[in-house]
Design a protein around this nucleic acid. Structure first.
Length: 658
RNA sequence: GCCGGUGUGGCGAAAUGGCAGACGCGAUGGACUCAAAAUCCAUUUCCCCCUAAAGGAGUGUCGGUUCGAGUCCGACCACCGGUACCA
């Protein structure tokens, strides 16, 4: 953690800092007061120190590819070089570039308006000062929506390190102070933005790279002693030639995490400001620092904590003299970055959590969260865990081994959220249909990772009907202790039902445990309930077969309709809770039917269907397919090239010619 | 612009390279009912056709791999979301 000056969205009228999301059109979204950029001293976590590890560990995680890709881009590692250019005044400007090989194409330097060299020059250059103020006055939004390149030529020049030519220095709006070094070497022939800028300000556009194709990095031209070298070699040679004035380096888009908030509701940052000792951490025995209650909430002005004398007045942990407590609180993302670790040891009064507990339980086997957390929460949490590991509080490199991201629920095209107020109250639906019906309906609507647009409760009738149907079935069934008869004593319909039951059981177990595909668990249950309903009323062993099937059905249903499952479990005369009962086991003798349907394809088109004994050999299947009546018109007079029998035995594919 | 996602019936969707549309919603017709609700049965991708049988086409478009492609590969189109000059 460190402290540094950074610009924030500042509302002068309210006297407070605003989050980017709260700034719309350069104004506070609530009050409409103008928002400016103001430098403020804040606390930061040095997330960039972990950038490489955060990036490299992604490969080993069982996470959705799209989330991993988003994090890779967010971290944004890029390899390049830093090079220092001497100003004619004697100072130096350092730039970052990924294309040092284009050095001979430099015709200008572009510096951020916040760059120290520009700020200093502006002190004696009123026109430059005016330009910088104009850029600063543009809100974040305005900077985003306009991509016009604006520049202002300063009185400064740098010397080209190889040619010794003077290169003019510009202040430019498209150079960002918080990426790289805040200074860019302008190579108009080989960079789109530099090109646009050079054309606008009448600068030369010399070509220094020739490439034969799009994917060829190119060969240097017009580059002095480097002419004729391949691009990738030239960069290395130039670094060597420049000596201590250049070095290969890596930059990241990832920024350090600013965690200061000037708000009451947050964890206090446990530091104390002492006139003599500076910023001092609070003593361990005084932790945690608790929020005071003698606070005035006015809704405007700086942090409410500043109104509490009991909070502010304290002693310096170092020298013991009167000192002032820090009033910044932490971003709530700090808390959400390790909450699950506290779950492991919630009653520990001396530590956040004991290492034995985290060693025993971590990493989290399966973490489920919304896709909107792909780059913020899920990077913060990974960063936090790595820091805890380095502090010796936890073990292992990553907190979440497997991740599933639910899709968002949208309403009228935008994310359903408390802050937007476009939420749907489920209470009315629950009181009318029950919580199980609502749960079932939502699970059934779409796969978990898919975004759904909430159009209403139209389909909930189906979920409700299904639950009523199975309830009726259990109510109409007379509970029995008769054991399930042996397979050879059952009627064909009874056997068919048990086969459907066991096949469904195998499929749904896989859907739940491996595929995490819950919508098909619901449709599988519906199919099985339809099959239960099809068992003839006069089936010879109806009671025993139904008892067996319903018993398994209710346990299968328990994860998606837990309340009703418990009721039916008890109605079936079973002891204890269904949710604690063992998961039903598949019975291998009922996984395969005696007869199987074999599809006959001719040149890839389905031409016939055969019912064959499951025991039929490949040769028998091939012979039956070739003899299949429906296929004959498509085989007559043709030469049979080959017959394919894929594994599984459910298909015979005949290839003919002529 | 860049990044990500999605394209399958009237709608939500299923199909783990092997019968496209399971399952459900809605709709239509019927049974039950004095009537309604509830429940049950039937039909419900398109073309041809008699509401039959048998065909044909069909998963955004165009191509490829394969005995076989909604699924794999390549190019493109459309829509949705995110992001903003990253040197």
């Amino acid at each position: 953690m460190f402290r540094a000056m950074r610009t924030v969205n500042w509302c002068e009228v309210l006297g407070t800092v605003l989050a980017n999301e709260q700034v719309v059109d350069g104004k506070d979204e609530r009050t409409g007061h103008p928002v400016t950029q103001k430098p403020l001293e804040q606390y930061f976590f040095k997330t960039t120190k972990y950038a490489d590890e955060l990036l490299d560990c992604l490969d080993g995680l069982d996470w959705p590819e799209n989330v991993k890709t988003m994090q890779r881009h967010w971290i944004g590692r890029s390899e390049g070089a830093r090079a220092r250019f001497a100003l004619t005044s004697g100072e130096e400007i350092e730039v970052f570039t990924t294309r040092l090989d284009t050095l001979f194409g430099v015709t200008f330097m572009a510096l951020s308006t916040e760059h120290p060299v520009i700020e200093k020059a502006a002190e004696s250059d009123l026109a430059l000062k005016a330009f910088c103020d104009q850029v600063a006055s543009l809100s974040r939004e305005e900077r985003l929506t306009s991509d016009e390149k604006l520049g202002h030529r300063t009185a400064l020049s740098v010397l080209h390190p190889f040619t010794g030519e003077q290169v003019p220095v510009f202040a430019a709006n498209y150079v960002l102070m918080d990426y790289g070094t805040g200074a860019v070497m302008g190579v108009p022939a080989h960079d789109e933005r530099d090109h646009e800028f050079a054309k606008k300000y009448g600068l030369a556009i010399p070509q220094v790279i020739e490439s034969e194709s799009e994917w060829d990095l190119g060969t240097l031209v017009n580059s002095g002693e480097f002419t004729g070298m391949k691009s990738e070699d030239a960069a290395t040679a130039m670094v060597a030639k420049l000596g201590d004035r250049a070095a290969k380096t890596t930059t990241y888009k990832l920024k350090d995490w600013g965690l200061s908030r000037q708000r009451y509701w947050g964890t206090p940052i446990p530091t104390v400001h002492c006139e003599a000792c500076g910023v001092v951490p609070e003593k361990a025995e005084n932790l945690p620092v608790r929020l005071p209650e003698d606070v005035a909430f006015t809704g405007v002005g700086p942090s409410p904590l500043l109104t509490s004398r009991s909070f502010l007045d304290t002693k310096c942990p170092s020298c013991g003299r009167p000192a002032r407590r820090e009033t910044d609180t932490m971003d709530t993302f700090v808390d959400s970055s390790w909450y699950w670790l506290r779950y492991l040891d919630p009653k520990n009064s001396s530590l956040p959590f004991a290492k034995v507990e985290s060693d025993a339980w971590m990493p989290v086997d399966l973490y489920v969260g919304g896709i909107e957390h792909a780059t913020m929460h899920l990077i913060y949490a990974r960063f936090f865990y790595k820091v805890l590991r380095d502090l010796g509080l936890a073990s292992g490199p990553e907190p979440f081994q497997k991740l599933i991201c639910q899709g968002m629920v949208l309403k009228d095209g935008s994310k359903m959220s408390k802050s937007k107020g476009n939420i749907v109250d489920p209470d009315e639906v629950i009181s009318r249909y029950g919580a199980d019906a609502l749960r079932l309906f939502m699970i059934f609507a779409a796969p978990i990772e898919k975004e759904i647009d909430w159009t209403g409760f139209e389909g909930i009738e189906g979920a409700s009907r299904f639950l009523k149907r199975i309830t009726r079935m259990v109510e109409d069934h007379a509970v029995t202790n008769q054991p399930l008869p042996a397979k050879d004593q059952l009627s064909a319909e009874e056997k068919a039902l048990l086969i459907k039951l066991n096949q469904t059981l195998a499929r749904l177990t896989d859907d739940l445990e491996r595929r995490y595909q819950f919508n098909t668990v619901v449709s599988g249950l519906m199919e099985l309930s339809n099959a239960l309903g099809d068992l003839p009323a006069d089936a010879p062993h109806r009671g025993a077969v139904l008892q067996h099937a319903l018993d398994a059905f209710v346990r299968l249903m328990s994860p998606v309709a837990p309340h009703l499952a418990e009721q039916l479990w008890s109605q079936l005369g079973r002891p204890g809770l269904c949710m604690q009962a063992a998961w039903p086991e598949t019975d291998a003798q009922y996984l395969e039917a005696d007869e199987v349907l074999v599809v006959v394809q001719v040149n890839g088109k389905v031409r016939g269907r055969l019912t064959l004994p499951a025991s039929a050999t490949e040769d028998q299947r091939r012979a039956a397919a070739l003899a299949c009546t429906e296929a004959q018109p498509h085989l007559a007079g043709k030469e049979i090239v080959k017959v394919v029998l894929p594994p599984g035995g459910k298909l015979v594919s005949i290839v003919v010619k002529g």
